[in-house]
Structures are given as structure tokens and as C-alpha cells.
Design a protein around this nucleic acid. Structure first.
Lengths: 143, 143
DNA sequence: GTAACAAATGCAATTGTATTGCATATATTT
DNA sequence: AAATATATGCAATACAATTGCATTTGTTAC
């Protein structure tokens, strides 16, 4: 995914700092969501832990990133589709969390809508499938 | 939900201890999933933290409880439907995570199936809707 | 019922994720 | 280039979860 960090920051009236740019660059490298610990490992020498947390939180609030919890309760981040905004995350695709390598994929499969019971108002719906991903399935076959 | 802790333990060849019985009793009190911290608050004087964690893990492995992560990355637990087993969690209903009171409801709404991309094998699918629950919606109207 | 054994519990210590307060550094506006 | 608002880095802290080990408890066989 090719992104323009400077443009994204301007769009959301966020100050242009090298830390913020680096976070966006790093996350945009892969369509697979990246976890906070992985990000910290990659950026820990350039960016302080706390700053990283703060940047990720701001990006989530602004609708720039979406956050997916994996089975361990660890936050994972991926770039939002263009239609996401501060008020509403249009994060209605399926996440696939591999139980072998723990990676989280954003799959291009539409989520069928379900109607909520009376009284419940849903803002966002998050569907996560747990199983084994393509890579890990192949790795098993080889052995 | 009425359950028989002794029967459940026997069914899964688990030793019958008072701690294990208490955990099952406590979780069965409500259809709403209960979080680890809440459980600890309620049972902390009877059961050691670590023991509680271990019991919850065993119950999840055996398919007795299912675990739902809330937005904070905290584990929440609810009794599985009868069809759950060690090999397969038939946890295919929708969870509703209220962003106001943070409660997790197990809704009686079937999850529409989606087909996975080639190479990806899904074992369980977890759908969580985020929004405002019935109680909190009513509370807002009153003020 | 009781002895023997395996397994569960409790405690202390530790890991790992996330947050808060405050001083310093940096980006934007004029 | 100066003023000001905001972001960053550091230290300390909170909280969820895990590990190792000694002790206790449940189960099985006698």
C-alpha cells in the first residue's frame, strides 16, 4: 500500500513530526496488521515507547488506523480504508488471525450484515476468523 | 442459566475442587460475559489470582467457557453452548460490546457465513459488534 | 477407610502491555 | 526569528498474565 504520510497528517490537522511519519511508513509496509510489540521492536531505537503508544492512539481516534485485538489481548494496527473517519470506522471487512504465526490479515471479504436486537445500537462490527493462514498451511505440508 | 458444575467437571475428566465449582457458579449467574478483573474482585478472597487464571484457561481449552477480548484487551468469559468441545468452539453467535458500560452480551443472532480465501482454513469465527446496549441507551434518554 | 500418587492450589517473583506526570524539545503561526 | 502550543522522552506506576516451586487436596487402588 502506497501512502503519503505528510498528506495524511495535514488532512487530520496533526503536526508533522518524524516519529509520526515513521509510524505511518512502517505500518503501510504490509497489508498484514502489525502488533504493538513488533512495532516497538522495529522503531524502539528511534521512538520512545510512550510516544509510540500516543501516536497509535491518536491515529486510531482520527480514523487513520484501525486496531484489532488478537487472542492474547495485544493491539494490532493496520491502515484504514479511505472511507474511515473520526466519527465512524468503516471497518467492515474480515480479519483473519492465524493461530500458528499469530499474524492478522485484512481479508477482502465483505461482512454480511446482521440486525441487532431492539434497543442495541451498533456502531461498528468486527469479525475475526481464527485458523491457519496460507503460509502456515503450506509450511505444514512441506514437513 | 442453570448448570451442574459437578456434572460438567466429570464430563471433562477434571478434578472436582471447590475453586473450580465456584468459578462455574459465578460465571453461570449471568448471560452477560464477565471479565477477569470482575471475577477476581468477586472471588479474590476465596481463590488465588493464579489459580483463577489457570482454571479459566483449562475451561477454555476444554470448550466449557469461551473467551472474548474486549476493546481494552481484557479477557471476558461466558459459558459455551452445549455443542462446544475441546476440538471445536461453536461460538458462532454475535457478541455485543457496549462502549458505555463495557459489558459483553451474547446475542441470539446467527452469524452469516463467509467463505475464506483459498489457503486459509478458519476454525472459529468471532463477530463482535461495538455500540450502546439497551440499558445504556435508556439511561441516556432519561437524562 | 486409608495409603499412595497425581494433580491442583497458593505464594513469591517476574514478564509484558499500557498509562500518567512532568520537564524538555520541536513544529507551526505571525 | 520569536512566541506559543503541542509533541516527545524519561521515570515511575498500574494492571493483566505467567512461571517455578513448595504445599495441599482429590482420586484410585487396596
Amino acid at each position: 500500500m502506497k501512502i503519503d504520510p505528510t498528506h495524511i497528517l495535514k488532512e487530520h490537522s496533526l503536526k508533522h513530526t518524524k516519529q509520526r511519519v515513521r509510524v505511518l511508513e512502517e505500518i503501510a509496509l504490509d497489508t498484514v496488521a502489525i502488533s504493538q510489540p513488533e512495532l516497538e521492536k522495529k522503531l524502539g531505537k528511534e521512538i520512545d515507547r510512550v510516544t509510540l503508544y500516543r501516536i497509535l492512539n491518536i491515529y486510531e481516534d482520527k480514523g487513520i488506523l484501525h486496531r484489532i485485538m488478537d487472542m492474547n489481548g495485544t493491539a494490532n494496527y493496520a491502515i484504514c480504508s479511505a472511507s474511515c473517519s473520526e466519527d465512524h470506522h468503516h471497518d467492515e471487512h474480515i480479519h483473519f488471525n492465524c493461530t500458528s504465526c499469530n499474524k492478522i490479515y485484512c481479508l477482502d471479504v465483505a461482512v454480511p450484515h446482521s440486525t441487532m436486537p431492539k434497543g442495541f445500537t451498533a456502531k461498528t462490527v468486527n469479525t475475526t476468523a481464527y485458523g491457519v493462514c496460507e503460509k502456515c498451511n503450506l509450511a505444514v505440508k512441506k514437513n
